[in-house]
């Protein structure tokens, strides 16, 4: 007695069906891909997904850098030099992480400008703007903590100045400076603290907020441009 195999097309679909039956993930994916967006959305509305791309790029190159980098004042600079000079394509990984951060800030400003221009922060998308604004502030904090990690002269002194600026705030300022530097001056602990913030805490928070931001975008849909001619006419319900 021979067992009849199902036709090949059905076999090919089996893993997907297995996942779908247990998680429902496929229908969520399908919903996200095949939902409608207004007919007249513009090229300006691609900036958000470009930001998403750059964020993924930063995370990937960041993990690669972390495989060689050592957050210790005695070795940090040398590991950066090693990555730049000796590691295979290390210069490209470091270069893309470095320039990716600048491009990310440019894109953030453009994306914010776009949503501002479109009035896309108005009802019902207020929360989308607020999550975005917090992401923006956290990305600036990423840049501040990342700058020290190279541990060259420029990074070191820019951080000293940055932390001192913090210290001018009344009451909380000096305490915050002390907490940031883990003491009165930049030391081994400062570098580990900045590293932990830069590669764990901040990207974790940003990743979570991006997920929330995108959930809101999908739930609420993207706006059509304010110059849209697609208006409800009488009789269309």
């Amino acid at each position: 007695m021979s067992t009849l195999l199902p036709p090949p097309s059905e076999i090919a679909r089996m893993p997907a069906d297995w996942v779908e039956e247990r998680s429902g993930l496929l229908s969520i994916g399908k919903y996200m891909l095949f939902r409608n967006v207004p007919k007249d959305i513009s090229w300006l509305q691609t900036l958000g997904s470009a930001l998403m791309t750059v964020f993924i790029l930063q995370a990937t190159t960041g993990v690669l850098l972390a495989m060689y980098y050592q957050p210790d004042p005695n070795t940090a600079w040398n590991t950066i030099a090693f990555i730049t000079n000796d590691a295979t394509l290390g210069w490209l990984v470091r270069g893309m992480h470095k320039w990716g951060s600048s491009i990310m800030v440019v894109l953030l400003f453009l994306h914010m400008g776009r949503t501002f221009l479109f009035g896309a922060y108005k009802y019902p998308r207020e929360m989308t703007w607020i999550t975005g604004a917090i992401i923006f502030i956290l990305v600036m904090a990423m840049s501040f903590t990342g700058y020290l990690l190279v541990f060259d002269e420029r990074a070191y002194w820019a951080t000293v100045v940055g932390v001192n600026i913090n210290g001018t705030a009344p009451i909380l300022g000096p305490a915050l400076s002390y907490i940031l530097m883990v003491g009165p001056e930049i030391s081994t602990h400062t570098l580990s603290r900045f590293y932990a913030l830069h590669m764990l805490a901040l990207p974790g928070a940003i990743g979570g907020l991006i997920a929330l931001h995108l959930w809101l975008v999908i739930r609420l849909g993207v706006t059509s441009p304010p110059w849209s001619r697609m208006k409800v006419t009488e009789g269309d319900v």
Binding site: M32, F34, N36, V37, P38, K39, S228, M230
Partner: peptide, 13 residues
């Protein structure tokens, strides 16, 4: 209005 725009819209993918 938005529901109308979406109904007459195009697929994301």
């Amino acid at each position: 209005e938005y529901a109308f725009q979406k109904r007459h819209g195009k697929s994301f993918f």
